[in-house]
Design a binder for these strands. Structure first.
Lengths: 161, 161
DNA sequence: CGTGAAAGTTTGATTGT
DNA sequence: ACAATCAAACTTTCACG
């Protein structure tokens, strides 16, 4: 499985990608105005980003507070026994659940950091029970309830050109 | 500061919003086909979502692996002294740094969970030093290096209609 | 890379349910 | 109040210079 080399980006690429990370709803004309390029030049670059897989996807970010109460939690998890298959099974379960926002395998005493999104404290508690308490391959887990989200997003710092 | 009540959503709203959370690049025509509505009916609903602030923003999600090495870390942080102003200052610093992807205030012995994105292990280490080690109001912090991202996103589970 | 024409998409007025 | 249709405005796309 060959890894394609990272495409070289000039300064305009970096500025375009940063603009798109902030707001992907702009027109080619707008983007061109920001970076000093014609709409079609911008379009050619965007097409390249998609072809090269630089832009994985384009999503709408919903505001949690406008859907009635929303509860977030960060859960630290350590498995009881480790094997390729057990990790695979755990990861598959995380991916399959719409209430699991994010799941990262990490180094150190904890194996995973999982971010949960629930409709209420009770919902969140039941979710934790279902995902972690009911799994007999989980040695221990700790739930950190989120009081306040200071910053959110998936933006990457781009390499300098 | 009055909180507007959560707008009631019918089943089509929930399906539309879920589609948009997965892929906001589709046309009104496509979306209409998925939920059985005409493009303009879809458009009126989307306009309402934006007016009501349900859709906070629309962003491009970049693929970390295509930009050369990218290192993620989850950092658990506890402040030394707590006050409204000290928390404000810390939050402002997190918001201002482009390498801070996410920052949540949490309950329990840890005060914050911070997600960092860096260009290399060394970059990540220096970032941690700058953000946390150099801050004399931080009692302790623990860095959990991310081995593998099992799932990522900001999708919310929507309330049943 | 820019231009401009063709294709496709969004928008808004109108009408009907 | 909400949905469908149609035409106008805008946006994206693509061949060419």
């Amino acid at each position: 499985m060959p890894e394609s080399p990272p495409p070289r980006l000039d300064e305009i690429d970096v500025r375009l990608l940063d603009l798109l990370q902030q707001d992907a709803g702009r027109t080619l004309h707008d983007l061109g105005g920001q970076v000093g390029l014609s709409p079609s030049a911008v379009q050619r670059r965007l097409a390249r980003y998609r072809r090269d897989g630089l832009i994985a996807r384009q999503v709408a970010v919903l505001d949690p507070h406008r859907f009635g109460p929303t509860v977030l939690a960060v859960v630290l998890v350590t498995l009881a026994r480790e094997s390729f298959e057990l990790h695979r099974a755990f990861a598959a379960r995380m991916r399959a659940d719409p209430q699991v926002q994010q799941c990262h395998r990490v180094a150190g005493p904890w194996d995973y950091v999982v971010v949960l999104a629930a409709r209420s404290m009770r919902d969140c508690s039941r979710l934790g029970d279902r995902l972690f308490k009911a799994d007999d391959n989980i040695r221990r887990y700790e739930t950190l309830m989120v009081f306040d989200t200071v910053k959110t997003g998936l933006a990457l710092p781009l390499p300098a050109p």
